[in-house]
């Protein structure tokens, strides 16, 4: 098994990869903990300074930054979309994978086709006009609704359910007299949980980082966190410590979640990637 032990080169490469992954985040902290003059100094500062707390308080106290609102909004948007996409996809995936019905192949093909269409980019014009005519611009509804549709989710859950739920299990439950929804709840759901986790993480990340559509449809009064950083950047373009303290704040919640659930996230991602 000598094949599986790493060479020196491999170790070095991994070390570099880890350093590079962490460096921009380290840099964010360096600037966020210094002064504006340091941020534009040459040579640049390489070590963190002592103003982190002060700068973070400044962001949180800055009414125009709308930072907490941005974080809350992003959390609300990402959670609602994630929960609904996971439920909708799991239901449809079960139907496609384990149930027989007429027109199934055509419908599944349709799902596959929609996967290739970047709807939120392609449909910006009519979606925007729709939101305007419904007077929904500036509201979170406008950000959430177009993303409830996720062809990738249905496809992923169909594939996953196929692998994870043997037909025999479904049929046995049927013989026991269980209705379809009950089979979904009792047989399918427990088996496809890892797939749901992967889809959930993916969807959450996608929504958290969504930028183009919120930039069009939201206003800086009611931003998601990405829009909050963008308007912070536009409004206080030379106040680097404020901007960097803001960006640091915006990713701390995500990193905290990641550190706590790291094992599950890495495991889930890997399992999902193989089974789908």
């Amino acid at each position: 098994m000598t094949n599986w032990s790493p060479t020196v080169f491999t170790r070095v490469m991994l070390g570099v990869a880890v350093l590079l992954s962490a460096f921009p985040l380290y840099w964010m902290l360096v600037i966020a903990s210094r002064t504006n003059a340091d941020a534009v100094a040459v040579p640049p500062p390489f070590l963190p300074g002592g103003n982190l707390g002060e700068n973070i308080v400044a962001v949180l106290n800055n009414e125009d930054a709308k930072f907490l609102l941005g974080l809350t909004n992003s959390f609300v948007v990402a959670s609602i979309v994630t929960v609904s996409v996971v439920i909708i996809s799991t239901l449809a995936g079960f139907s496609f994978a384990n149930l027989a019905f007429k027109g199934k192949n055509v419908l599944l093909l349709l799902v596959l086709l929609t996967m290739a269409v970047p709807l939120q980019q392609m449909g910006v014009v009519p979606l925007y006009r729709l939101m305007v005519s419904m007077e929904w611009t500036g509201t979170l509804k406008a950000v959430i609704l177009p993303y409830l549709l996720n062809g990738f989710g249905v496809f992923l859950m169909t594939q996953y359910t196929r692998q994870a739920v043997p037909m025999e299990l479904v049929e046995a439950a049927r013989v026991d007299g269980a209705a379809t929804l009950r089979i979904w709840w009792n047989v399918v759901l427990p088996a496809v949980r890892p797939g749901m986790a992967v889809l959930g993480i993916n969807t959450f990340m996608l929504m958290w980082n969504d930028f183009m559509w919120p930039l069009i449809v939201l206003t800086p009064d009611n931003p998601t966190v990405q829009i909050a950083i963008t308007s912070l950047n536009a409004r206080f373009s030379t106040n680097y410590t404020l901007i960097f303290a803001g960006t640091a704040l915006s990713i701390i919640p995500l990193i905290a979640v990641f550190v706590v659930f790291g094992r599950q996230i890495v495991g889930g991602l890997m399992e999902g990637a193989v089974k789908a």
Binding site: M28, Q226, N233, F258
Partner: peptide
């Protein structure tokens, strides 16, 4: 986990940092 770290940062935040770099 550390090679996955970049993924859990937010895209605009990172772009701001790189723009400064």
């Amino acid at each position: 986990m550390s090679v996955l770290l970049p993924l859990v940062t937010s895209v605009v935040a990172v772009a701001v940092v790189f723009t400064q770099l």
